[in-house]
Nucleic acid binder design. Structure first.
Lengths: 342, 342
DNA sequence: TTGAAAGCGCTACCAT
DNA sequence: ATGGTAGCGCTTTCAA
């Protein structure tokens, strides 16, 4: 293991000078700095991150803790974060929180907050107060925070607007009987859940349905977990039940593809019999048959905004903490075959 | 920040005793250990990983460095690794190597090897010799290593066997004109490339084609990058060229779905006109229309074998290194609609 | 069975 | 402009 002392010796300067030179401190003379850099390169020196971290409390690593790594949307999001962080000259480590026997709490406390200068976290069931001490005082930006009185910065997906636009689009292509696949209608009764992703998308639907003059009925909302298999079964049940519908807004793309697949199983054609819109804009929607119309979240924008918030927080004066800020990611309705009629 | 000294003071013992007690060292008396654990819990103490790592060189974290996080196969694989590692009581950090301006080398050297006790790495263009020093001497298991004279342990996807079975399956459902979408036929000339994933799958195809009595012709192999968009365009070109074919084996599921999508664009029906088999077994293949027949790699098995190799290496006696071992992951042909005829 | 103390590699303060 | 050095929090050797 080659240490900073080896480099210092090779360059004929002190350890302190080596440290400064390697980090580009301006007070080191250009000639000296060059000598040091050469020695470091020759010896293949890399600073020991643990030591640096222990000493200075910073190591240039940003953590992204995400629920599931094997679903399209979160993994595309992690990749976007990773790119954006690299653009700022930092490194990313990604953690999957779902599978740990100790859960997301342990991961945050034991790993993410320790190995990183800051983190992006998608909160599941941990409250703000708990997050505060799990974060070890390090900056954290949440994704789709449901808190009514936010403590952390957060970047949200454009739930209300996106859902509303999806409904208007369906109405626009002539749908008269719209169903919404995903949300539990009863969740509107719960103040906390109403603030979450599902609640906000549901709210967007309801307001848009009213806008386009459709009567909002509980049986328009078909509850399902957000995976393709469940959505597919819901489609089977819905068709078998005899309920008529000519448009479906699905709360995620994965749900939409499962639902379309289920309709195909029953011989219902998309878009001719039923027009379908998803939400997320995952890559696979483009090669699906039929290709999927979707509310496509601008992940580059989401990542940029999240990292902006995080960097701002990392630079803040500890004595004068900034109030928590909340921003919404951009999005775009991408029209494809699943709603293309006539 | 609560340190081990705070816990020691609270428990009324020394720092050393606290350290031993917290890690369950048997030489500490049960009563003392209990006292210490209580104090630690009361203070919400968590050991500082950087300090632990700096001092002992171990921290219970395993790194997974993967090329792209936003494609189905690598992200499902990372998730499987993450689960398997959790099962052994360790933590996982995942890194995407593709987007760093410094590249996979820098990531390995600067992050993965530093923050982890061991790593799983999917090598791109880095040679064994270079990997050796980038690994900081820490154990590393490669995924689909192409080396002719391996230096590291490696777990491989069942390329030859899987590809061969795919071809036999196509022949079995009556295909007489098979095309293979993905590989560059000329790559057989290159000894290194021949050892890679593409080369081995290609080799499997060729041997199976001969087995089933088909003449192997270069124009059966359609070169494409492994993404849905390119595969889709290849389908367009192939249909337009007038070449006849009634079966296609695609080197990955993503390629297969793009190719099927391209066939659909041209009005060719799957499986009636063309039967299609993919490779990987990604989740989305099940809800694709038509659902995708595929050589499904057993990711749980792959992860288990990889972590077994890594753990073995982490326990080895440094004086007597074990020779590199190479194992192959299990797989299964999953028959679905894309090859279901009659 | 427990405690004292050295030191992992680095950064940052202070001195020169 | 450069160097000496304390010390981040922990583990581990050695002594008691």
């Amino acid at each position: 293991m080659v240490t900073i002392d080896d480099v210092a010796k090779a360059a004929g300067v002190s350890r302190a000078t080596t440290s400064y030179a390697l980090r580009g401190d301006p007070r080191i003379a250009p000639g000296t700095a060059d000598k040091v850099r050469h020695a470091a390169a020759r010896l293949h020196y890399t600073a020991n991150l643990s030591a640096r971290s222990l000493r200075s409390g910073r190591n240039g690593v940003i953590g992204v803790a995400i629920y599931e790594l094997d679903r399209a949307y979160p993994s595309e999001m992690s990749a976007a974060m990773s790119r954006e962080i690299a653009r700022r000259g930092c490194q990313t480590i990604v953690q999957q929180t779902a599978n740990s026997k100790e859960g997301e709490i342990a991961i945050l406390q034991k790993i993410t907050s320790q190995l990183c200068d800051g983190m992006i976290f998608s909160p599941g069931n941990v409250g703000d107060a708990e997050l505060k001490y799990l974060s070890h005082g390090k900056p954290m930006v949440l994704l789709d925070d449901s808190s009514t009185a936010p403590v952390f910065d957060s970047v949200d997906t454009p739930c209300e607007e996106g859902a509303a636009q999806a409904i208007r689009h369906l109405a626009g292509v002539g749908c008269r009987d719209i169903v919404v696949i995903g949300p539990d209608y009863r969740l509107l009764d719960d103040e906390f859940a109403r603030n979450g992703v599902e609640g906000r998308r549901l709210a967007g639907c309801i307001s848009a349905l009213e806008d386009v003059g459709m009567r909002v009925m509980p049986d328009m909302f078909v509850h399902t977990t957000w995976d393709a298999g469940s959505a597919r079964r819901r489609a089977h049940e819905l068709v078998r039940s005899g309920r008529r519908f000519d448009g479906a807004f699905c709360l995620t793309d994965t749900v939409a593809m499962g639902f379309i697949r289920g309709l195909a199983d029953c011989g219902a054609r998309v878009p001719d019999d039923v027009a379908v819109v998803g939400f997320d804009g995952v890559a696979e929607g483009a090669s699906f048959v039929p290709s999927l119309t979707t509310i496509s979240v601008d992940l580059e924008d989401l990542a940029r905004k999240a990292i902006d918030l995080l960097m701002r927080r990392m630079c803040e004066d500890a004595g004068h903490p900034l109030p928590p800020r909340r921003v919404v990611a951009g999005y775009q309705l991408v029209e494809r075959e699943s709603t293309k009629r006539g």
